[in-house]
Structures are given as C-alpha cells and as structure tokens.
C-alpha cells in the first residue's frame, strides 16, 4: 500500500507516485463489500419490494 511503501523507499522515485484512485478502490475490501451489498440491495431487493407493495387490489 502507498502508506506502507512511502516510508520505506523514499529513494525510489517511482514509489513517490500516488496510487491511482481506481487501484485504491480495488485494494479496499471493505469499500467493495459495501458496494457489493448496496447495489443489489437497492436495485434488486428494495426496488423489487416497492413494486410488490404497489400492486393494486382487485375489485
């Protein structure tokens, strides 16, 4: 990780380069966990349940 490496190898200029944002995202398991639960919970479960509750009642 960047914060680990920065201290150890200041002499190597390549290590000074900040880690790109997408790589940081992919290196963060808990952020991925959050997204992996949030997306299906919102689009599949919550939206789906809302649709079920909106089914009209037959006469």
């Amino acid at each position: 990780m960047s914060e680990n490496n920065d201290g150890e190898s200041r002499t190597d200029p390549a290590d000074q380069e900040p880690i790109p944002m997408m790589q940081r995202l992919l290196d963060n398991p808990f952020l991925l966990l959050l997204l992996g639960i949030l997306v299906p919970a919102v689009f599949y479960i919550i939206w789906g349940i809302i649709e079920i509750t909106q089914i009209p009642i037959a006469e």
């Binding site: 490496n5 390549a14 290590d15 380069e17 880690i19 790109p20 997408m22 790589q23």
Partner: peptide, 14 residues
Amino acid sequence: MAITPPSERIWWKE
C-alpha cells in the same frame, strides 16, 4: 502470477 501480489506497485497504469 495470479497467486502472488502483482509485480508492479502501480498496476493500474499498465
């Protein structure tokens, strides 16, 4: 290899 960490520190820019 796929069972070892990526060889490049910043693999996103490969």
